[in-house]
Design a binder for these strands. Structure first.
Length: 762
DNA sequence: TGATTGTTTGCTCCA
DNA sequence: CAAACAATCA
């Protein structure tokens, strides 16, 4: 076995350099993942390092999973890799706190290892509750989101509410500090950590608890950190703490790809690595193996406009390839049609995967519509993921309440879901009582019931609710996780409620819940408990939902990090959209936007097409606003680009569009505005967490609400004789359902759904 | 209390 | 345009 063969000299050195701090400046497409995986395999095989002594952190679970697969393929069962840690910073910290967090109770009173995690919605609900308590008004004071982001920012700087209050220069900040203080108090009281806490508390534990730090330092001999340019202060400290004794830190990054400063990422971490470790070896990987020369030239020229960089110039031995395409669309809709149309002409083989990248999620809608109109399958990364759906979050909230009934945010989420007669008035009463007596909502309900403070109707409803939760608490002691979930679904009547609705949407939601139960059964088989199951839901990232089998993927530029596609479209290159209007004021923010553009461009292997629109509607009904082409377009040298035109192309697309006009209006009606990721993908994701193997692939499905075969009005179908048609009307139910379908060229046909042999057309 | 209707507001990016 | 919230009515 030779893990050095086929590597270029720099890659080879990066793999072999085993002792002491190492910084790998890996340009886009320079074989970074290859170096990391080979390095791990080489350490194990050639240096006899125990897999359990290696810790590698990456940016997403998906990237971690892929690296694990590659390493285990290389070592082909010769070494047991169970002990190898390959995960994200957040997962790593959660595991650390769950396993070895007992001592944190000294630093954070009330902390236990069965803590739960709040996602952003929970955090927002908490901020709202605090506002309510302190009599603050979102409109007069600060928007919830803004408050939350300032709190998070303070936390990332390791500021306490007191620090914030002390430094306050204006009364608003003083008030914010008060919000912050109560926010923290409520987290602690419920034994909950937010995302920032996961890193923060892990660092605190290691800093202040000698035995834990020593234990980790004894175990870990090699630390690898991927995407180092996007680490924040906490992650940096974590790295220092975990490598104190051996100092075998290998940081891999590219300052030109730093795109997360708004999340606290500190570009100084990478710029100052050599100052932090004076004996560090620095290796540059500057040969790009991904893109054609034209693409690379454009990207390099663009990023060269930045000042804050170490400076490097990627090169490639690849042919020039096609020039980078530029297209000027009339408006957002036409831009989308152009993309959909061009895909049809460009994509020849299944291997021609397409990535459509945009700055903001909102841009996906029009592109989706265009793709649907062209009958193309596509997959939206992130978008509206499994765990963000209301029904899934509800069920998980029940679990959180079972783990910690004093978690009032989760409790309030489910107290009247499904509706059980606990209304606004009653809840206001309970909340007031809880605040007065400094109790959690759960404790307040108990006390108030015991003291008979409710009117009859509320008393009945809350009494029943208390009994219900108590039953769950009891059941949680000895029943299996999936059994517990089933019990919840049954006893709360959640599934019944959905069945009662009798709509395709409700059916899809019921299906999601069953999927969650299945996932829990699998989690159980891997030996996970409730907490681990919940962690999993909290720590999936949007990028984890990428389905490589999909021919066309839609995703934000941020989610595109680390990925590659033979064909890439970047849409919406307009001043104010990209670079985003909120970045125009600050020089460094603008540079980050430029890096983001660079990241996007360097995702492309063979073909890159950049588009912008002369005008765009900010939201639906509003007036179209004229826009200027992005400055980034001007920074790309024309010698490597080709003009894909505007007017001429526009006509063509428009003619095509007109033919599909009827289809479009119908579709718009049926379109709910949300796009779901396929269930299969989620099942696979769950499965791949424990065992590294993803399930055998099946063709990707069109992202659409799951449901049984019941054609909705307005949907397109295919008939064996008449071809494509649109459902106009439906009469009757079940066996005898009659459909009226309009077939172009044949007119209206009335068909029995059962016998017509219709196939869905997407 | 809870369903329905009306009104407003929002679009960065994310673990 | 569509979610979130407020107001209204049954």
């Amino acid at each position: 076995m030779d893990f050095l063969a086929g590597l270029n000299p720099q890659q080879r050195e990066a793999v072999e350099y085993a002792q002491g701090p190492l910084l790998i400046l890996a340009g886009a497409g320079s074989g970074k993942t290859r170096v990391i995986t080979h390095r791990i395999a080489h350490l194990i095989h050639a240096h006899g390092v125990a897999p359990s002594a290696i810790v590698a952190v990456t940016f997403t679970n998906k990237a971690a999973g892929e690296m694990r697969d590659r390493v285990s393929a290389m070592l082909a069962g010769r070494y047991p890799l169970e002990g190898l840690t390959l995960s994200t910073f957040h997962s790593f910290c959660v595991r650390l706190l769950r396993r070895d967090g007992q001592a944190l109770a000294q630093l954070r009173p009330g902390f236990t290892r069965s803590f739960t995690i709040y996602d952003e919605d929970d955090q927002l609900a908490l901020v709202k509750a605090v506002y309510r308590h302190q009599g603050l008004d979102e409109k007069q004071f600060l928007q919830y989101r803004a408050a939350l982001s300032r709190i998070s920012h303070a936390k990332n700087l390791k500021q306490t509410p007191d620090d914030l209050a002390k430094d306050a220069k204006d009364p608003r900040t003083t008030r914010l500090a008060a919000v912050f203080e109560q926010y923290e108090a409520r987290l602690r009281q419920a034994n909950v950590l937010d995302f920032d806490d996961l890193l923060l508390e892990a660092v605190r534990l290691l800093q202040h608890h000698e035995p834990t730090r020593q234990a980790y330092n004894r175990r870990i001999q090699y630390l690898l950190i991927d995407e180092y340019q996007d680490t924040n202060r906490c992650q940096y400290e974590l790295m220092r703490l975990l490598s104190e004794s051996h100092r075998n830190v290998c940081a891999v990054g590219d300052e030109d790809q730093s795109i997360y400063s708004w999340r606290g990422a500190d570009i100084r971490n990478i710029l100052d690595f050599e100052a932090d470790y004076p004996d560090a070896r620095t290796i540059r990987l500057e040969e790009n193996y991904r893109s054609t020369k034209n693409i690379l030239e454009c990207a390099s020229a663009l990023v060269a406009h930045n000042k804050e960089r170490k400076g490097k110039w990627l090169w490639t031995g690849a042919p020039a390839g096609s020039r980078v395409g530029l297209y000027e669309a009339y408006d957002g809709g036409e831009e989308a049609l152009f993309i959909a149309d061009t895909i049809g002409r460009l994509v020849k083989a299944p291997a021609d995967r397409v990535g459509i990248l945009y700055r903001t999620h909102a841009q996906s809608r029009q592109i989706e519509e265009a793709l649907r109109r062209y009958g193309r399958q596509y997959h939206v990364v992130g978008g509206f993921s499994f765990y963000q759906r209301a029904e899934v979050k509800d069920l998980l909230a029940y679990l959180k309440v079972i783990v910690a009934p004093q978690d009032s945010i989760s409790l309030l989420r489910i107290i009247n879901t499904p509706v059980r007669g606990i209304g606004k008035t009653t809840l206001e009463q309970v909340e007031r009582y809880a605040l007065q007596h400094e109790l959690s909502v759960w404790a307040a309900i108990g006390r108030m019931l015991d003291e008979e403070l409710f009117p009859a109707r509320a008393e009945t409803a809350l009494g029943a609710f208390r009994k219900l939760i108590e039953e769950f608490l009891e059941a949680a002691k000895d029943s299996r996780l999936d059994g517990l979930l089933r019990l919840i679904l049954e006893r709360t009547g959640y599934l019944k409620m959905l069945e009662g609705e009798d709509t395709p949407e409700a059916e899809a939601r019921a299906e999601n819940l069953k999927e969650l139960v299945r996932a829990s059964a699998e989690a159980l088989e891997r030996g996970e408990g409730i907490s681990e199951f919940l962690d999993h839901a909290a720590l999936v990232s949007e990028a984890d939902t990428l389905d490589e089998r999909a021919q066309i993927s839609l995703l934000t530029l941020h989610n595109a990090k680390g990925l590659e596609f033979p064909i890439v479209f970047m849409a919406g290159l307009e001043e104010g959209l990209f670079p985003h209007s909120r970045s125009l004021e600050s020089k460094s923010a603008l540079e980050e936007e430029r890096r983001l553009c660079y990241v996007g461009m360097t995702r492309a292997q063979k073909r890159l097409i950049l588009t912008w629109a002369q005008e765009r509607r900010r939201w639906g009904g509003g007036l179209p606003e004229p826009s200027d082409p992005s400055r980034f377009l001007k920074e790309i040298p024309r010698e490597f680009t080709e003009d894909l035109g505007k007017k001429k192309r526009f006509r063509q697309v428009d003619l095509y569009a007109e033919r599909h006009e009827a289809r479009d209006t119908a579709r718009r009606k049926a379109y709910t505005g949300k796009t779901y990721n396929s269930l299969e993908n989620i099942t696979e994701f769950f499965a791949s967490r424990g065992a590294a193997k993803p399930a055998p692939s099946s063709p990707p499905r069109v992202a659409a609400p799951a449901g049984k075969k019941k054609f909705a009005i307005g949907s397109m179908v295919e008939h064996p004789r008449y071809g494509k048609g649109m459902i106009i009307r439906r009469e009757g139910e079940g066996e005898s359902a009659k459909l009226t379908v309009s077939f172009p060229g044949y007119g209206l046909k009335k068909l029995l759904e059962k016998y017509a042999g219709l196939k869905a057309q997407e």
